[in-house]
Structures are given as C-alpha cells and as structure tokens.
Computed example of a mutant assay.
Amino acid sequence: MPNINISLTKPHEPADIPMETIPVRLKPEIMADNPVRTSPVGSTPGIISDNSTGPNPIFNGQYILNNISMCTQSEPVNIIVVVHSAPAHFVPRLFIRRTYGARKLFLPTEVRVIFLLGRVEYQNLQREIIDEHNKYGDIIQGDFKDAYHNLTYKAVMGLHWVSHYCPDVKYVIKTDDDAVFDMWRFLKYVYAKKLFMSKTIYGIARLQDLIPRIGKWAVPLKYLRNYTRYPFQYCIGFVLILSSDIIPDLYRASFKVPFFWLDDVYVTGLLRTYVGGIGIRQNGGNLILDSMSDQRECLRNIDLNCPYLAVVARTDTFMVLWNLFKTRSVL
C-alpha cells in the first residue's frame, strides 16, 4: 500500500442514549424465505481473524440481530444483496423485498437480501425492528449507533457478515435503500456471461476528486492532511457490484487501515488500495448506475435500449421505476 497518512485516530462513536436491553424472541414460523438462527452478541465463528492485531477495531462481530443461516440452506446462494438501510425505513425495505430482493422472482438463480442497521435509541422502534426480523429474517443489526457518520461501521459489518456467514456466494451487490436495481438485467448481462467475477469492483469510479473540507461530506483536516485530492481511486457507494473473492481480504484490511468516516472512500479506496490487486470497472455501456437523476422517461421509451441498471428513487417513485424495469425485462 502506498504511504498514505490518514491519521491513526481511533474510530469515534457519537454520544449515545443507553437503551434497555430487549430480548430477541424469534418466532418458529418465519414468513419469508429466510429461516433464522442467531448467534449471541459478540459471538462469531472465527473464520476471519488476525491474531497479530487482536479484535477488529471497527466491527468484530457484535450483532444485536443476526441470521447465520441465510446462506446455509439446501440451495447455494449465488447473489447476496447487502442494503445499507436507516432503522425507520420500513417501507423502502418492504419494496426491496418485493422487487430486486425477492428470491422467487429470479429462480433458479438464488438471490438473498440483508438489511444492515445499527443500534437505535428508542425502545418502540427497536421492538418494531425485532418484529420485522421475526417476520422476514433479513435484518442484520450491529451494536453501534446508527448515525450518518457511522456508515463505515455498517460497511465493515457487511464485510464481516458476508465473510463469516455467506462465504461461498458468487456476487455481492451493495445498495442503499433508495436504489432501484434491475436484477433481471444484471442476470442477463453480467451473471450469465460471468463478467466481473474475480478481484473486481464495478461502480461509479472517482479519480483525483477534491477532498471536501466543508459541507455534508467534510473530511476533518487531521485526515489526509497533506492532500487536497484523494490519492487513490474509489467508487461512489450508491450501488456496487463486488466479486465475492475480495470480501474477506477487505475485511482483513480493516484490522489495519484506520477508521475513515466516508464508507465508500474507506472500503473501495483505502481498503482496496491496502489489499492491492483489486480492480475497478467504471460503470458504462448498458449497465449504467445513476444516482443523480430521474430516468423514468428513458425507461418509458421501450423502443430505446435504455442503459440503466440502477437508479435512485423516492418512496413515491420506487415501484413506478421498478415496474418500468419489469416491463423492459419481458420484452
């Protein structure tokens, strides 16, 4: 790894309101495709370890809610969709379960979805999340405060979870819960053709971006203090497609690479650079990822080969966009 001085400051978790421990009562009759087995908070199978450094300083398996049997059913899981979700976003999660995270839509390819959450402050919200997990079995909740500046905790938890509980999956698709992803198009143009299979991240690549020192994505001056631009390439985290062979290496790297609060820069920039040998493929062609604009007009014009693989949505446009993807897929 190049000698990039980003500071050795330990991860900082914002002040928290203690929450009374609520026991997780899992119902025997799970209503989705995901029968649930859990492991206690702090318990991991020990598949990934680094004895020279001790526990991972960012995330070392401290789960509040988990499902360790998601990928251990009779049919091997081919694709796992890992969604960064806000705790109160129940409706977006339901939309995803009914669309690109719906197993039955894509058989015989086995697709599963998990939603990554952090700890919440209010007991009523936590009870709702527990009920949701009891029903669907797909909530993965870490024991860190769910906050915007803690997204790197969530990202490293995702690396830990896939490394430990879904190590044989072929592709990892990381999305945010406001993304609409055309799984049919992915299966046709990527999965069936075995593209991007090894040591690769596919996403919206950024190179030599200015490091923001003010505003929403501000990087404190103590980080990358000698740089005005990022000294490495990275991908915007809206949607990422990762070959599964890089996930354990990225998680191992998080033992060594100091915390950096912008999760997409941390995972696809700093961790990837530390590991080495992981390429970035810039989105393009007929697999465009678009996190900025409304692409309904393009998708409505079925005479055109609209190139979008994933687009951003509001709650009121999510199903509209999905249905346009669906119409395109059957033509």
Rank of each mutant, 00 (worst) to 15 (best):
S69E: 12
D138V: 04
I129Y: 06
V111D: 09
Q141N: 06
I68Q: 11
H160N: 14
F144Y: 13
I96K: 02
T109P: 02
V81E: 04
F90N: 07
A88Q: 13
I58W: 07
M157K: 04
F59A: 09
I140Y: 02
N150R: 12
Q73E: 13
A86H: 09
R97G: 06
N66E: 01
H89D: 14
N78Q: 15
P108I: 11
L151F: 11
I130L: 07
H133G: 03
I80Y: 05
R103H: 13
L94Y: 10
L159G: 05
L116A: 05
E128D: 13
T99G: 08
V81R: 02
R98V: 00
L107R: 15
I79H: 04
N78C: 09
P76M: 11
A102F: 11
A102V: 00
H133C: 02
I79F: 10
D131P: 00
I58C: 07
R112G: 03
A102K: 15
E121A: 13
G61H: 03
F144S: 02
T99D: 08
Q141P: 00
F144W: 10
Q73Y: 05
I64D: 02
I114P: 01
R103T: 15
R127L: 14
G137P: 05
Y136G: 02
R119H: 12
R98L: 15
E121W: 02
P108D: 09
R119V: 00
Y100D: 10
I79R: 09
P92D: 10
F115T: 02
R103D: 07
T152K: 05
I58V: 15
C71T: 08
K154D: 00
L105V: 01
L151I: 06
R112D: 04
Y100C: 10
S69T: 14
A147Y: 13
G158A: 13
I130F: 12
D146Y: 07
H149R: 15
F59S: 01
R112H: 13
V113S: 10
Y63R: 07
Q141E: 13
G118T: 03
I68R: 12
G158C: 05
D138S: 10
V156S: 01
V111E: 08
Y122G: 03
Q73I: 13
H89K: 13
K135M: 10
R97C: 11
E132P: 03
E132D: 12
K135L: 11
H160G: 00
D131S: 14
Q126D: 04
E121Q: 14
L151Y: 09
F106L: 08
G61K: 03
D146E: 14
V82A: 06
C71V: 08
E128S: 14
N60W: 08
V77R: 03
N78T: 12
I140E: 01
E121S: 14
R98P: 00
T152Q: 10
T72W: 01
L151R: 14
N150S: 11
E110Y: 06
T72L: 11
